[in-house]
Simulated scan of single mutants.
Amino acid sequence: MNKLIFGALSALTLTAGAALAEYPEKEIQGFIQWGAGGSTDTVMRSVTPHAEEALGGTIVMQNMTGGVGAIALNHVSGADADGYSLLMGAENPLLYKVMGLGDKDYSDFIPLILLARGTPLLVANNDAPFDDYQGFVDYVKANPGEIRIGATGPGGLPSVITAMMNEVEGDLDMIAVPYDGDGPALTAMQGGAVDVMPAVLGAAIEGVRAGNMKALAVFDVEAAAKLPDVPIVTSFNEGYNTFLPWGSFFGVFAPKDTPEDVVAKLSEAFATGAEHPDFLALMDDRGFKMMNISGDEAQAFLDKWQQGTTWLLNDAGLTKASPEEFGIARPGE
Rank of each mutant, 00 (worst) to 15 (best):
A21M: 11
A254Y: 10
A70Y: 14
E22N: 12
E268H: 07
T152S: 13
G211H: 03
I232P: 00
F243Y: 15
K104G: 09
W305Q: 14
D257C: 00
Q62F: 06
D296F: 05
F249R: 10
K214N: 06
G56Y: 15
P154Y: 03
P245V: 06
E169N: 11
G170R: 04
E324Y: 08
D261I: 00
A274F: 07
R45W: 05
N212M: 09
A16N: 11
D127N: 03
I71L: 14
M174E: 13
Q190V: 15
L12F: 14
D261G: 00
G191A: 15
Q307F: 06
V98F: 01
L201C: 09
Y133H: 05
N126F: 05
I32L: 06
M197N: 13
A116E: 08
A321G: 00
N166H: 11
G317V: 01
W305S: 09
P184E: 03
A210W: 10
D220H: 09
L201G: 07
G170W: 09
W34G: 04
L186Q: 06
L201K: 12
G150S: 09
W305H: 15
G37L: 07
I113C: 12
S46H: 05
Y133F: 14
P144K: 04
N126C: 02
D105Q: 01
V168L: 06
V208D: 04
N126M: 10
L280A: 07
R45Y: 05
L244W: 04
N74C: 08
G181N: 03
A199G: 06
S294V: 11
L12Q: 06
K256T: 09
A203G: 04
L101T: 03
G207K: 03
M283W: 10
A225G: 13
A11C: 11
P255W: 04
A51F: 02
D173K: 07
L216N: 09
T65C: 04
D284F: 12
F270L: 09
D127A: 11
G118V: 07
G317Y: 10
I28P: 01
V208K: 01
V137D: 02
V252T: 06
P228G: 09
K97G: 01
T319M: 03
L86M: 11
V252E: 01
F279N: 04
E206V: 07
A11L: 15
F249P: 03
L20P: 00
G83R: 09
A269C: 10
M44F: 14
F109Q: 00
T234Q: 02
K214M: 07
A254S: 14
G100M: 01
D220T: 03
S107N: 10
A79V: 04
K304T: 10
A18F: 13
L157M: 11
P323E: 11
Y139G: 05
D285M: 01
P24S: 11
A185M: 14
S10H: 04
E222R: 05
N237F: 05
R330C: 09
Y23A: 07
D41R: 02
P277C: 01
A79L: 08
E325V: 04
K265Y: 07
G83D: 11
D182C: 01
G207L: 02
D82F: 08
F326D: 03
R209K: 15
A116K: 00
A36W: 10
T310G: 08
M44I: 13
G287N: 00
I147V: 15
K26E: 14
A185K: 11
M189H: 01
F219S: 02
A298V: 13
P331R: 05
T15A: 13
G295M: 04
D105H: 01
H50G: 01
G308E: 13
